[in-house]
Every structure is written in structure tokens, then in C-alpha cells.
Nucleic acid binder design. Structure first.
Lengths: 350, 350
DNA sequence: CTGAAAGCGCTTACAG
DNA sequence: CTGAAAGCGCTTACAG
């Protein structure tokens, strides 16, 4: 018989069920039944129950999470996978994450964060994470090609703002097209006609939806859509060189904030000279000066919902993966106003 | 003999070492030696090694994390405990967390977040977290009384900006007094003499250090310290009613941002009418308009260091708990300028 | 009401 | 070089 291993001395280890049982003069199972509320039909007499509780308290007993997970096939932990730019904080993620944390802790689940550098290359790491350390995984803003990889079937997934529909995965998103539509309608109602839209990467679902909403609003007001006014995210907008727009509608708040900074450098005031609008209504929108008119996505609530859906999937696997779409809210703030009356001399935008 | 349990059908379960061994015609231990690089002295012949690798690949084998953790007494996971106001994002925490995440993933550790509502009451939950689910715990800004609770000895702790010294716990902090000193020196050099300091909760280490630095700088310039100019964090400053200061030095960036907002409501311009300075140099400082002069604490680097120290503690427990103090950097930005020359009529500050 | 047994999936001595 | 055995700490049938 091998000696018991002792990397650390036994005395410095946490007490086990066996220790509690020995102390109370009962078996480890009896202790398990009392302390960890096993669903066994058996009941323990009030007297031994008390002895066990006292012994457990005296030994400062805590059930070992790894052992429990191994026996139960349940880690009580959900994973969150997201791309977080090393060094730069991503407010979109942070607000979602805040909701996930709150909801997970309410459901007594731990939350483990997996950071990816890039969905395209790092998505291949996802199956490796489904090795029993998490019971389910929330993908925040995944953009990988589902055909390039088979997702594991034994761990349920939920996605937020997935760029493509992943088979068997519930996706949670907002009605982004409607948000873009309402935003542009607001700008139109203020009298703007030349509305620039700084969008995200071409070909992605989110940007495409915003562009669709943008175009729909313009069409509704019979304003022709000038393709030069739609510029991709990086926004080193050569197309804007000749004509400064009256209003800039950006695909997210960070882009809008970047526009505001550049406008300030050019000596232009927001909203007096140019109106600027964002999307997401993250902290950046509330903290900018002037505050940013934006489309509110309930990111925190979406994070909360993601946890709830994921837990439901964990309980009963194989349900229908019907996507969940949240409504959006237009939040008018100071960065949008009526366009200037007089045509001014147009400076070079970058 | 009990039947194998089958909550899910066996075929839908992840492959185990036994499965791989069977497939390759060897024992599970041989498979373990090849696949999980067990440190056993034995070596496997090149030929069976290949068979095992092929079998593992075919079965899509992943070592089960819970089983590994149980056998190894090592979860490859570090915990992070912090108070995060439900609903409100805390940039101090987020920047630290960013560093922790980056460093943990570099060391192939998972990161689990535990959110507390309040250190005083929730610190009692900490021992319960040391149940094998984490190998070590980073406490971000703990403020509980160490005498009210014995920390578990079998799980190492590291703290960031701990309010009191916790026995056996390495604390990581910044030279905050020096930061406050340099900040007030800057304000003095600009010609300010009536410098308000909006500080944090009285009696906490951080605020006390800032106050000490503030007073040291004033003393160095032979400017008498007016106790009415030091106001606690909530800053519904009745003491400021009669005399508006030339400059306000806040104990963190969020407080400074709040001051700037109130000043704007009062029609006062920063820095033309009042200079405002913050502490921490979080995102808020860079995003405010005008940008906030602040004291830079390398929060992300501190998070990274926290992980490294914690891992060292996990490897060899019981080292000296020598605190780590980072230097600070003064970051001058637009929110601080020379005081206005003319005494103006003083409006009521709240 | 209570306990002996087997199992979760991995490791680490140890024996061949 | 390879395998049978025992153990990590818990749980869930099952038998008394």
C-alpha cells in the first residue's frame, strides 16, 4: 500500500468529509448527506445531524470544489470569452461583463474570463476550454467562421452580438437597425441633410444593420444616400476631405468620441458646427463633453440574460436556439443640435 | 456492481484517458504519460507514443480539468475579489483587472472574479472561496479588519492597495503620498494658494496618505493648510460655500470629474476659473474635457505584478510578505493652469 | 436511519 | 518500457 502523499503536511490541508465523519463518529456519507444536502432519500437523525454539524464547524470544513465537480460533472462556473485589446479597455465588453458578473453571482456561479486576441485564430482554443472547467460559455461578439471549426457539443454556448449564426447557439442581440433608423430620423428632424455615417468593418453584421437603418431613414425622408458619406471605422476619411457633413453618426460611441476629438483639434464645436451621434450608450457617451447622443443597448441586461439562458441550456441541453433580440432606445443628449444656418468655409478633415 | 450512471449518454461525453488507452491498446497511465506529460520517470516507446497520439486526436481527447485538479491539488486558476458597485463601473478596478487578465493568461492561469458588495460584511465569504476552486486570491482594495477574521492558510493571498496590513499577505501599492505631494507642488508652482483637496473616506490609508502629501507640499511652500479646504469624498461641501478655491485636488479621478461637472453647472470654466486635478490617471482623466491633470498609478502593471507574486506564493508557500510599492508619475494636462488674476464674485458651490 | 462499495477522470509511486 | 493499484474528495445507488 503506498504511503499517503504529503506535499504539504496533512495538518495544513483542508478538512474532508472523512475527517468530519471520523470526528463525529459516523461515515463520510452521513456527513455528506447533512453538509452538502445530497439528494439521497435517506434522512439522518436529529441527534447525529447535530454532531456532524458541530464536527464540521470545529474542523472548518468546506466541501472541495474539484472533487465535487468531478463527481457531479458540474463546476458551478461559466466562462466568458471575448477579445479584449491588450492595454485598451473596451467599454462595450465591460458593461456586458458587469451584467454577467452580477447575474452569475446571483445564481451562485463563478465566472471565468478567457481573453482572445483575435477570433479568427483564437476561436480554435474554445474546444480546449470545454474540458470540465466550465459548465457553459458565453461568447461576447464572436466573429469567427463556424464552418472552420466544430464547436463541442457537450458544453452549451450562448453568444452576444454574434457576427454569424452559430449552429445550436442562442444569440442575444439588439435591434440595431431600428436604433440606426431612429438615430438618423432624429438627425433629419433636426434639419440635417448631409449626415455622415462612420461605420464599423464592412461585411460585419452589426455595421451592415446600422447602414441599413441609416439608409432606410434617409429614404423615408427622400434624402439621397451619398455613398461617400458612409466611411469605414478606421475613418481616415479621405472622402470627407471636400465636404464637411452637418452631422456624423458613428457605429459606436468610441468612434464618435474619436470624431469629437478630431473636430476639436480642427477648432470645430460640437454640436454648434457639427452634430455627432454614437451607438451603444456606453460610459463614454455619458462622460464626453458635450454628452453624446447615442442609441442605448442594454448591455448589462444582455449580459444578465446571457447567463440565464446559458444556465437553462446547462440544465436541459438541446433546446431550440432561438435568438433573443432586445429593443433599443434613442438617448438624445447635447451632441446633436440643429445644423448651422450659414455655410461656412470648409476646413480639411484630417 | 452499480450500473454506470448515464445522465447524458456516454457517447456524448468527452473522451477519457481510459478511452484513449483502449483505442490505442495500452493502459490509461501510458496515455497519461504521453498526453499530459506526467513527470513519471518512465518513457514510452516512440511507436506506442504515436499510436496514443493518433487515438487521442481521433477521440478529440481533452484532459478533464476537475479530475486533474483533484489529483494535483492545483486548479490552474486564480481568484480576484473586489467590490464592484452593482451597476456602476469602477475604472480603478477595471484597469487593475485588465492587467490581471493579461498576466494570468500569459501564465496559463484562468481568472475567476468574485464580486463583493462590501468588504466589512462579505470578507467572511473569502474562506469559503478557498475550497479548491482557486489556487490563490488577489484582493483588490480590501478594507476589512484582519482581526475580525482568520484568513485561510492553505491558500495564498496578495492584496492591492490594502487599507490595513494583512498578516502574511504581500501588498502591492503606489507611493501615493509622493503623488499627492508632487501634484500640490505643481499647483503651487502655477501660483495657486487656496487649494482644495477633495479626499476619500476619512481614516482610510489611501486618503490619509494623499492628505499627508498635500500638507507636506503646502508646508514646503509655507502656505498654511486651511482645514476647511480638505473635504471628504461625498463632497457636498458646505465648507466651500463662502470661498471658492483656486484649485481642487481630488483623491481620485472620478471625484475630480464630479467636481468638473458641478463647476460646469455653475457656469465656471476649468481651468480658466478653477483648476482641477485628480489621482490614478484612469480612463476618466483622459476622456474628460478638458483632460484631467492626474497622478498616474500603473494599475495595469500592478495587476500583472499581483499575479506574478501570487503564483510565486503558490509555488513556494510561506515566503516573506514584503510589500511592493510602485513609483507614481505626475501627468500634467489641460485641467490645471495658473489661477485667475482678478478676484471674482463667488457663487455658491452646491 | 446508516454504511460499505463503486465511480467521477486524473496522478503518482511502485512492481514487473 | 509498461501496467495494476491506490488515492485525490466527493456522490449516488444499493443493501442492511
Amino acid at each position: 500500500m503506498p504511503r499517503p502523499r504529503s506535499r504539504k503536511s496533512r495538518s495544513n490541508r483542508a478538512a474532508t468529509l472523512a475527517d468530519v465523519g471520523r470526528e463525529a463518529g459516523v461515515s463520510a456519507m452521513a456527513a455528506s448527506a447533512v453538509l452538502n444536502g445530497a439528494r439521497t432519500s435517506s434522512r439522518i437523525s436529529e441527534e447525529t445531524r447535530k454532531r456532524i454539524l458541530i464536527a464540521a464547524h470545529g474542523l472548518n470544513y468546506r466541501p472541495n470544489a474539484a472533487a465535487r465537480a468531478l463527481a457531479n460533472r458540474r463546476m458551478q462556473t461559466i466562462g466568458v470569452a471575448a477579445v479584449i485589446d491588450d492595454g485598451e479597455l473596451n467599454h462595450y465588453f465591460l458593461e456586458v461583463f458587469n451584467g454577467i458578473l452580477a447575474s452569475a453571482s446571483r445564481h451562485e456561479q463563478n465566472t471565468t474570463v478567457f481573453t482572445l486576441h483575435n477570433w479568427g485564430t483564437d476561436a480554435a482554443r474554445l474546444p480546449g476550454l470545454c474540458d470540465g472547467r466550465i459548465d457553459g460559455l458565453i461568447l461576447v461578439g464572436p466573429t469567427f467562421d463556424p464552418k472552420s471549426m466544430r464547436l463541442p457539443t457537450h458544453t452549451p454556448f450562448v453568444s452576444l452580438h454574434a457576427n454569424t449564426s452559430l449552429p445550436g447557439v442562442v444569440n442575444i442581440e439588439c435591434d440595431e437597425e431600428q436604433g440606426a433608423y431612429e438615430m438618423v430620423r432624429l438627425l433629419l428632424a433636426q434639419g440635417h441633410r448631409r449626415i455622415m455615417h462612420v461605420t464599423g468593418p464592412i461585411g460585419m453584421t452589426g455595421p451592415e444593420r446600422r447602414i441599413r437603418g441609416y439608409k432606410r431613414a434617409l429614404a423615408g425622408a427622400r434624402v439621397p444616400a451619398d455613398p461617400d458619406l458612409i466611411v469605414p471605422a478606421n475613418y481616415n476619411a479621405t472622402s470627407a476631405r471636400d465636404a464637411l457633413p452637418q452631422a456624423i453618426f458613428c457605429a459606436n460611441d468610441s468612434a464618435a468620441f474619436g470624431c469629437m476629438e478630431t473636430l476639436a483639434e480642427l477648432g470645430l464645436r460640437v454640436p454648434d458646427d457639427v452634430s455627432v451621434a454614437g451607438f451603444d450608450d456606453t460610459l463614454v457617451a455619458r462622460i464626453a463633453m458635450p454628452q453624446l447622443t447615442s442609441v442605448h443597448q442594454p448591455l448589462r441586461a444582455m449580459g444578465i440574460r446571457a447567463v440565464e439562458v446559458l444556465l437553462a441550456c446547462i440544465e436541459r441541453p438541446g433546446g431550440a436556439a432561438k435568438p433573443i433580440v432586445f429593443p433599443v432606445d434613442l438617448v438624445p443628449r447635447a451632441s446633436v443640435a440643429a445644423p448651422p444656418v450659414v455655410d461656412r468655409i470648409v476646413p480639411v478633415l484630417r
